[in-house]
Design a binder for these strands. Structure first.
Length: 115
DNA sequence: CCATTGACGAAGA
DNA sequence: TTCTTCGCCAATG
């Protein structure tokens, strides 16, 4: 196994990491969620939770991004200025997820681990 | 190359 | 319990 790396290799790994994030997200069942930190742990590349968020931000259409929430069970998308408020919650509620009064969901109930 | 900015998260105050 | 601070790492100017 070669240790030396050229630009192409690194670029390839970056794209591969993005691909991995998308794959994990696509495996989350309807009505279940994962946190950014969970995805970070599951991935071999050890991408930081922060980087995971960025990858999902750049995910292709059809990716169930709404099933990824923060460690508190809240919708991080609501923090973005140019993003429809409440969209993530609405999409999740359509899948049967119920939110608590404080706007978060119960991870004890909805958290899912790939198996 | 350096500074700044996030769809994060854990630990302190 | 709420608010800060800091580490994290990809992307952007």
């Amino acid at each position: 196994m070669g240790v030396k790396r050229v630009h192409g290799d690194v670029e390839g790994e970056r794209l591969n990491a993005q691909q991995q994030v998308i794959e994990v997200v696509r495996r989350i069942p309807r009505g279940r969620v994962m946190t950014y930190g969970q995805i970070s742990e599951v991935m071999a590349s050890r991408l930081s939770p922060r980087a995971v968020g960025w990858m999902i931000h750049r995910c292709p259409d059809g990716t169930p991004w709404q099933r990824v929430v923060n460690a508190s069970g809240g919708c991080s998308t609501d923090r973005l200025p140019d993003f429809p408020k409440g969209l993530q919650r609405t999409l999740l509620e359509e899948e049967g997820v119920e939110f608590r009064a404080n706007g978060t969901l119960d991870l004890e109930v909805y958290r899912w681990w790939p198996g």
